[in-house]
Design a protein around this nucleic acid. Structure first.
Lengths: 326, 326
DNA sequence: CTGAAAGCGCTTACAG
DNA sequence: CTGAAAGCGCTTACAG
């Protein structure tokens, strides 16, 4: 094409404000540059942040993101998935979590759409997530290092099952290695008063103030940990004086002075990049075997953990905690 | 169609797992059921929550959402907008904020795409947002009611300009009505030490501990308010004993015991619904005049505000604040 | 190398 | 009411 002609075409593009019709292109090419993102609760800062970095990573690879919230009723969730499949997304980033045998899982598997699980794992697709078991060990070792001996793992419904189990496994490993007895998982839903320990159902207060109550709690995630701190303080236990609490995720607010949560950090940005690139590889060649990437985690020591009461000087433990005094 | 034939067709749909190709439909109909959402920082819980409710509202109306983060470099932002326009989104929900005269604004206006501004306003499109000025008055009246007389409005870069100005206006109105002198806006960026007051640049510490320093601060939004509380306490001022802080938005973490932020609440869910329905009306008929919907706000009194030091009994003010003692 | 034609999977307007 | 044809705006394979 001659330079002057070229120039005139370019001008016409400018003048008419022409934008190539991606719909038409996608239609004829039979493939889109849209990545579906299946989400749960965006008010959970962990997911909000992860969603953001996924969008950025996808954009960096030339893809746009179509979000769909799939928490709540199964049928709503399925129609959210159908909407994404109807729009023929090139692949799906699975960021929420659902029951193992759910209609959502079935619909996804049946559709055969390329998928990557982020922050959790599922055998039939690629996955990227933190080294949960290692994180569980790090958290527990930190508490053991502070001389805690009665340490409990507190499971909240806010963390996905595979991650939860691995974190608990890490806790057990660390306890056993230190010659301590692992307790059964404490199961607690933030906002409630009920605590389940193995088959026994008791109250949160009772579980925390019994003579043999744990002196340190490892919550399965930060939101749960923060809720747990609030619950402890409501029950009259000062953190970390009377009881230590450690979380998992290192969400932004964990760093606030007033929260100052000791926790296990995982690199969100890096995980999102990896997840999107795994997904794009699978889109390019759907036959490759599922790959499972685990990324390193790191302990962040802050103010919510300390030595158990018995290990301190009397004078110190007589004073009231800064946090309970309001 | 005869019932048995109908049955066989339905079965074939099941068997082949047929999903109508939305791309083809959108292509031929020359309109999509995708709403573009322009976002800023999703780690700001206010935006994350708003984004979530927008997605839910859109889904409820049969639309999917395509997200694009437009914070950062202008050219990145413009290509994010172009991606949405290229996908021929039916309309755009503008959730982030950019400079008034930005390339993003120009691109959007030039494209003539139906748009609704959420949480901010812009003359050339529909908008939905809180009654900012009323919120500013409510916040200021609350502080005045506690007997504060030196009250400052603290502007942070986290809130959009139109909202910020209206909140400040509300502050001024309340001060003048109470016969108090409004101070010029304090301009502060969380994480920094610099404070700008009118033309004067000073340090945060100096601004807060001068003899005529304000005894109460009204921050333009919650994230700013929480950062401000941290900064005050780092500077040795207890909240609310030495200084009161009120925010705006009522983000989820404001309710945490440890944060307990007094603030102005705005109904996010309702705003998202209204925004999406305005947008759909405009998509149906692009000629209607821009409408600007303002929704009610409400004061939430929590623990970050109290009477000024001078108005209390000596005994009380002699004790250390719960928060600074760590 | 250049240009015209076919076709992606739907919807819609129209002929029968 | 039913069924066949045209066409949406691109890309791609192919003829010239």
């Amino acid at each position: 094409m001659s330079p002057p002609t070229r120039e005139r075409v370019l001008q016409a593009i400018q003048r008419l404000n022409y934008k190539p019709n991606a719909i038409a292109r996608q239609f004829v090419q039979q493939r889109t540059t849209i990545l579906g993102v299946l989400l749960g609760d965006l008010s959970n800062p962990y997911y909000a942040h992860m969603a953001q970095v996924v969008e950025r990573a996808a954009f960096g690879f030339g893809y746009t993101t179509m979000f769909s919230n799939i928490e709540g009723a199964e049928e709503m969730a399925v129609s959210g998935v159908d909407a994404l499949l109807g729009h023929r997304v090139a692949g799906i980033v699975f960021l929420a979590f659902v029951a193992r045998r759910s209609q959502v899982n079935d619909a996804l598997q049946r559709a055969g759409v390329p998928i990557v699980f982020l922050g959790l794992s599922e055998s039939w697709g690629d996955s990227v997530g933190p080294r949960d078991a290692e994180g569980g060990r790090l958290a527990t070792d930190h508490l053991i290092g502070l001389r805690h001996r009665r340490i409990a793992y507190v499971r909240t419904p806010l963390v996905e099952r595979t991650g939860d189990r691995s974190r608990f496994r890490g806790y057990r490993t660390a306890m056993l290695r230190a010659g301590l007895e692992p307790l059964p998982a404490f199961v607690w839903e933030p906002g409630t008063e009920r605590m389940r320990i193995a088959r026994r159902i008791t109250s949160l207060d009772a579980a925390l103030s019994a003579p043999d109550a744990p002196t340190a709690l490892f919550a399965s995630n930060d939101i749960g940990a923060i809720a747990l701190i609030e619950a402890c303080e409501l029950a009259g236990l000062a953190v970390p004086r009377d009881i230590s609490v450690i979380g998992f995720d290192d969400i932004t607010i964990a760093r606030l002075q007033r929260i100052s949560l000791t926790t296990i950090a995982q690199p969100l940005h890096f995980q999102a990049e990896r997840a999107v690139s795994l997904l794009l590889e699978r889109i390019a060649d759907p036959r490759i075997q599922p790959r499972h990437v685990r990324v390193p985690v790191a302990l962040k020591v802050r103010g919510s953990t300390g030595p158990p009461a018995g290990a301190r000087r009397r004078a110190r433990s007589a004073s009231t905690s800064a946090y309970t005094k309001r």
